Amino acid sequence: MRRNSGETAPERSMSGEEMEELRSRTVPDVVAEGLRVLFCGINPGLTTARLGHHFAHPGNRFWPVLHASGFTPRRLKPSEQHELPAYGLGITNISPRPTARADELTAEEYREGGRVLIEKVARLRPAWLAVVGVTAYRAAFGDRKARIGPQEAAIGDTRVWVLPNPSGLNAHWTLETMAEEYGRLRAAAFDGPR
């Protein structure tokens, strides 16, 4: 992802002390009741923890994909995440603990995150829960056979869709192919029945 002016702070090296301090920060959810889609990331990265905005790493493609797939009328900056509920969208994470890499999370953190996420979804009642990352979905919900796309599982009346992880490290998916898959969810969430 190419950074637009003011999109995120430039990447820089962090001291060990700063990294440890960031690991104790939380990044608040961007949620409201009755959203059309609640996007669920794996956990905050250290850049997200430093800046306090979801998907804030310059290499993360979430914000460009959100726009390219038609969820937003323009490309939002991470600092504009507060605008998402006006579009019927929100963001949460499986685990609140910031890490440098998602593989630092334990199996127990994934399972506990899945349990907490089910409670959150039951309370907020979005039409769709969109988990970004099939490996994270499998770990959090114990569904080893899950694939990208809509799932048979539901949480109450909330349908579940697994999307490709927008991390720049996910080389299996291009911006275009991710936008196509996210666009399938957009059509289901906004063009289909509530």
Rank of each mutant, 00 (worst) to 15 (best):
R23Y: 05
G16A: 13
A68I: 07
L89H: 02
W63L: 08
V132A: 12
N43M: 03
L38N: 03
T47R: 04
I91V: 13
R74L: 08
G133W: 09
A188M: 13
E80S: 07
P96K: 13
A179W: 05
T135M: 13
S69Q: 04
A68S: 11
R97G: 06
H54N: 01
R115K: 14
Y182G: 03
L22C: 09
S5D: 13
A153Y: 05
A139K: 10
A139M: 13
K145T: 15
S13V: 14
R184Y: 06
K145H: 14
C40D: 02
E21G: 10
H57Y: 06
L117Y: 05
K77T: 09
G168W: 08
R2V: 12
G52M: 06
L76F: 07
L129S: 04
H172M: 09
P96R: 14
R125K: 14
V121N: 06
Y110H: 11
R115G: 04
R12H: 13
L51F: 05
R25P: 04
P73A: 05
Y87K: 06
T26I: 15
E33K: 11
R186C: 01
A187D: 12
I94Y: 01
P193H: 10
V65D: 01
L66R: 00
Y182K: 00
R115W: 10
P58H: 05
A189T: 00
I118V: 15
A171D: 10
A127F: 08
H57A: 04
T47N: 10
F55E: 01
G52T: 01
H82Y: 14
G41M: 03
W128C: 01
R125W: 00
E18T: 08
A9G: 08
L84H: 06
P166T: 07
D103I: 08
T48L: 07
V27Y: 02
G114M: 04
P98E: 09
D29W: 07
R97I: 11
R144I: 08
D157Q: 12
S13H: 12
V121Y: 09
D191G: 15
P28V: 11
R123V: 08
L117F: 08
K120M: 07
A146C: 01
D143Y: 05
H172Y: 10
S69Y: 00
E83Q: 14
E83C: 00
W173T: 05
L124N: 04
A146H: 01
G59A: 14
R2A: 13
E152W: 12
R147L: 13
G113C: 03
A187S: 11
L38M: 14
Y182Q: 00
H57G: 08
H82S: 14
Y87P: 00
Q151Y: 00
C40I: 06
R115Y: 11
G142E: 09
E181T: 06
R101K: 13
R74N: 03
A153N: 11
F55Q: 01
P78G: 02
A86I: 07
R2F: 10
K77R: 14
L175H: 08
D103N: 14
E83A: 11
E181P: 01
P193E: 14
R36G: 07
G183H: 00
L66M: 05
A187Y: 03
V131M: 05
R101P: 05
E20A: 15
E17L: 13
P78L: 10
L89A: 04
A140W: 00
E112V: 15
F55G: 00
R75G: 02
